[in-house]
Design a protein around this nucleic acid. Structure first.
Length: 111
DNA sequence: AGCTTGACCGACC
DNA sequence: TGGTCGGCCAAGC
């Protein structure tokens, strides 16, 4: 079994705090931890994200995770995460997250 | 030791 | 709305 680095463990812990229907950006998680940066969080999620609700940790522009668009979208629809539908005339495109409404700052979770 | 890469970000145009 | 740029920081080669 591989051992989970300490930092990775903290990142995953935060990911699990995010309520259904809300999301946090990579940068938000890093800032919350007061340690590392968006890219570090991104790496942790790439390596170990499968163990947690990975679809709730997203890019700040609200683009769905490349390679997992459909499974992410299924999760968002099922937990009613605010989405911005693709503009008309661009039917091939998938929706993006409505970051303004979906972004979660940690309210409620004892800080 | 130096250079590239990555589930990134904000500013700017 | 979308593309580029510089900054970011750890990991790999």
């Amino acid at each position: 079994m591989e051992e989970l680095p300490d930092y990775a463990e903290r990142v995953l812990e935060v990911a699990e705090l995010i309520p259904p229907g809300r999301v946090m950006t990579y940068g938000d998680v890093a800032e919350w931890l007061g340690e590392g940066g968006p890219r570090q969080v991104g790496r942790v999620m790439a390596l170990y994200g499968a163990a947690v609700p990975w679809w709730r940790v997203v890019r700040s522009d609200g683009v769905l995770l490349p390679g997992h668009e459909l499974s992410a979208l299924a999760e968002y629809r099922s937990e009613s995460t605010p989405l911005r539908e693709a503009p008309r005339g661009a039917e091939g495109h998938l929706p993006r997250l409505d970051m303004k409404r979906a972004r979660w700052d940690g309210e409620g979770s004892h800080i």
